[in-house]
């Protein structure tokens, strides 16, 4: 399944919404959007995962890389409303406590 990526700006942050599957073939596109927005360095970045049906470890690695870049730039980075399947993967990788996870967008 394909991945749709939308981005919008709020007063305090950039929001990236991923919709579909984040896997070996689609995660580079998500990585590109996240790193490009973080490179602006002006606002925190949130990734809305509420409509991600499947995420593999390349998707998790993409989020980890985003967090690392944000931390280095002293910008906020958070995940919102991860679906149950995404949450399971984050828990398996013991990353659920590493990311700031918000329940709603």
């Amino acid at each position: 399944m394909a991945l749709d990526i939308d981005k919008r700006e709020t007063d305090s942050s950039w929001m990236v919404k991923a919709k579909g599957d984040v896997d070996l073939y689609t995660s580079p596109a998500l990585r590109g959007v996240i790193l490009k927005l973080l490179a602006k360095g002006d606002k925190a970045l949130g990734v809305d995962l509420s409509e991600v049906l499947y995420m593999d470890s390349s998707g998790v690695a993409t989020l980890v890389e985003g967090l690392k870049v944000a931390n280095n730039a002293k910008t906020g980075f958070f995940l919102t409303a991860p679906s149950e399947s995404v949450m399971k993967v984050l828990q398996l990788a013991r990353l659920d406590a590493v990311f700031e996870i918000r329940n709603s967008v």
């Binding site: 070996l24 690695a61 890389e65 990788a93």
Partner: peptide, 23 residues
């Protein structure tokens, strides 16, 4: 396998490798 069969960036592959080894 990731280097041979995907077009992922090396930084992504390194994190994925560490995740798998942690698992």
């Amino acid at each position: 396998p990731l280097r041979e069969h995907t077009k992922l960036e090396e930084s992504t592959i390194e994190i994925m490798t560490k995740i798998k080894l942690e698992l």
